[in-house]
Amino acid sequence: MKCPYCGKELSKVEALLASFEKTYFCPYCWHDITNYRRQEQMSLSKSKISTKGQADERENKSLRNMRKAV
């Protein structure tokens, strides 16, 4: 595992802590890797949310079109 900010290879100990600690800072550049991990998780779930958001937008658009038509 590499630090996403400084690119330094993390040792086994550091990689374990980066994976399971609630908050973990890269010991080389002191960036918060937890945030990165969370962002990664969020972006994964975001991709699902955005699909849903796009669907909602499509739904709203069709509703607006329907209202216009009425």
């Binding site: 100990v13 374990l16 399971f20 010991p27």
Partner: peptide, 13 residues
Amino acid sequence: MLAVARVAEATRI
């Protein structure tokens, strides 16, 4: 592993 990793990291830092 979690415990030893935490102590090892504290020691190293």
